[in-house]
Design a protein around this nucleic acid. Structure first.
Lengths: 221, 221
DNA sequence: CGGACTATAATTAGATC
DNA sequence: TGATCTAATTATAGTCC
């Protein structure tokens, strides 16, 4: 401490947003630290609560790291065990949606745990989202209007379908646009300002059957 | 202030040793809290570092919870493949996974992979379900979170797809639900938000298990 | 990449409703 | 069983080795 002004050793931990870290280096450092932290948490959980826990992590580079008690393989096997798979026996078209809903509810049961976790993150995201405007708010407004008139049953189906849609969008945005065009006669309610893009990108398209993925939810969805 | 000495509201967090919690009740509470925390950490890791992460937890009662990005099953498949991976098993009950973690961190050879191209990473997304408001707001909340992280291009596709979905739902809500159940085996495409915290509920032993979820075929729409 | 360090952001044990 | 609250324990972002 010779110099008069001693440089502060560190600013201490800084708050960061939960979004991809752009800096290659920082991302790598963070990966190492958090991976270790995750495994530690997993370990503590298994010990404190006598629970079996397995965690697998693939680094961006492709390396695989894992933690498992009793062993990853064993747990994964148990997890994949088809013994629990639900078999929607002959989707007896005769049944009414209601029974399906009931079945769904039963299946998801404790899925509520997930909502719990999501809630936490949602709050953070919500904040950052306030700044966003533009096309986003348009889509939202549109959805809000549409959803507003749906019945529970429809809402569940909608939610399920959204799950699938979202994934497709994130993965193949362009292709999605084309497919969507072909499949739907999107002549109807389309967020303003977005319709132009549809036509703009429309070219070819082979229709696909829409499949919905169930979202999640204790009793809805 | 009635009494002279006001009892302190709480002693605050207490330090605990990492060993099986004897109290049945305390153990259950701890399990819930830490399970949520673990999944959150897993989610953050996957987002911050664009890493693929999967975690499976079996409660002492036998229920299985899981988190996976992109999906547990997809990652498990990859994990099974004999690549240059390193895994460790924690001893959980009775052991201290701590040292194991340290060892794991050290274990890394120098294998690079080709998985890098596969990450269709996304940004932050979270969904919160306000049970108080009903399914409607849940769907909205999800969409809200989803849309917030999309790029313009994705947004366009999303908007396009939405109109199609909306139409389909309004017309065949029941059927869509059914399709969702049959098609979705809750594996591949668990969309963000629902995807990030995509928990799977299993019941070792009896009853049926959950398996549903999102995941239409390889392509959706 | 794994450690070490500092100061601060997050998590969560314990008790309550 | 879940949500809250308080206070203390942990996890870590940033930086250097």
């Amino acid at each position: 401490m010779v110099a008069a002004a001693r440089r502060r050793p560190s600013l201490g931990r800084q708050k960061i947003e939960i979004r991809r870290i752009e800096s290659e280096e920082a991302r790598q450092v963070c990966f190492s630290k958090r991976r270790a932290g995750l495994f530690k948490k997993a370990s503590e959980l298994s010990i404190l609560c006598s629970a079996d826990v397995a965690a697998v992590v693939f680094s961006p580079a492709g390396k695989a790291y894992s933690f498992g008690h009793p062993s990853v393989e064993l747990l994964l096997e148990r997890f994949e065990a088809p013994e629990g798979q639900v078999h929607v026996q002959g989707e007896g078209v005769g049944g009414e949606g209601q029974s399906v809903v009931a079945e769904l509810n039963r299946q998801y049961g404790d899925l509520r745990a997930m909502l719990e976790a999501e809630k936490a993150r949602r709050e953070e995201v919500e904040e950052a989202m306030d700044k966003e405007r533009g096309a986003r708010s348009q889509v939202l407004a549109w959805v809000e209007a549409e959803v507003g008139g749906m019945e529970k049953e429809e809402l569940m189906a909608f939610g399920a379908a959204l799950s699938v849609v979202q994934h497709g969008v994130a993965t193949h945005a362009d292709q999605m646009l084309r497919d969507a065009m072909v499949l739907g006669r999107m002549s109807r309610a389309v967020p303003q300002g977005l319709e132009n893009y549809y036509f703009h990108l429309l070219q070819t398209g082979q229709g696909h059957t829409a499949g919905a993925g169930a979202g999640a939810g204790d009793r809805l969805f």
